[in-house]
Amino acid sequence: MTGSNLIRYGLNAAKLFRIKQRQTQFIAVRSCGWIRDYKPGPYPKTPEEREAAARKYNLIPEDYDCYEEGSGYGDYPKLPVVSQDAMDPYEEYDNYYRRRNFGQTLHRDYDILTSEKTNPNLVFRFSPLVMFSVFIAPFFIFSFIAWIDYYFDLHSCNPMKPKQFPGDGRIHYTFEPVD
């Protein structure tokens, strides 16, 4: 390909990409009806309004519980805090990667409860104090060993014999033949 053909190809690809991008944006906005459907309404005050809100969020009226009035969440349901890691991995989900089914009402902190972010249901095997002490113990152990080496003058780091300097009255080297 010549340079002008590459430029022409690049410009055409850019135009196609822009068209595809606009079309994708339009499809995304048009197809995500759950945003409009799950937009919180006013706080329910009567039992009929509570039942209507429960139906709106695909819940049975016994399971429906909303946030207190004035919290800013309106009639959005108060769902239990369960992260994706805590959900059953062997269940048949419509979207297995996100572990959710079609039409399932999302928790208000859904973006925080994803599998790559946090798991508030996680129970650690050891307490935080034990984990911190196991983390810090090697530093104290090696510092104690270094202090013993320094205090008792053990010279364990670089042991060597004393240097042989001329002039101390001894003959260190001679050119005389051995008898």
Rank of each mutant, 00 (worst) to 15 (best):
Q104W: 04
S83H: 00
D37Y: 12
T174C: 12
E69C: 15
E51L: 11
Y38I: 10
D179H: 14
K39C: 09
V82Q: 08
P177I: 08
K45T: 12
G33M: 09
P128T: 12
F142G: 10
V178C: 07
E91R: 15
I148F: 13
M1T: 08
Y150K: 10
L16E: 06
A146Y: 11
N58P: 01
Y76K: 02
F165W: 03
G70C: 08
D37G: 04
G70N: 05
F126D: 14
D65P: 00
M131F: 06
Y73V: 03
C32V: 12
N121M: 07
A54T: 01
Y96G: 01
S127A: 14
S127E: 11
D179F: 04
D153T: 12
L122R: 15
N119D: 13
L79E: 02
F135M: 02
L129S: 06
S115I: 03
E62H: 10
M131A: 07
P40F: 01
R108G: 00
D75Y: 02
K15M: 04
Y43G: 00
S83T: 05
L154F: 15
M87V: 14
V130D: 01
V82T: 06
D153M: 10
A28W: 08
D85W: 07
F139M: 06
F139D: 05
F144M: 13
K20F: 11
L79V: 06
V82I: 11
I171R: 08
D37T: 04
A52K: 09
P80I: 02
Y96H: 15
F26D: 08
A54P: 00
Y97M: 07
N12I: 03
T24L: 00
V29I: 13
H172L: 14
P44E: 08
R30H: 15
P77A: 04
E116S: 08
P44Q: 10
D149Q: 09
A53F: 03
T118F: 02
F132W: 14
K117Q: 02
Y67I: 13
K56G: 03
S127D: 13
V29E: 10
E68K: 11
Q84G: 04
Q84Y: 00
S156F: 08
D88P: 00
Y67C: 05
P77G: 01
G41W: 03
Y173V: 11
L59Y: 00
I19R: 06
R30K: 15
N119Q: 14
A28S: 10
Y73Q: 03
I7T: 10
E92P: 01
E92C: 10
R18P: 00
G169V: 07
P47Q: 12
L106Q: 04
L16Y: 11
R100K: 11
S156C: 09
A52E: 09
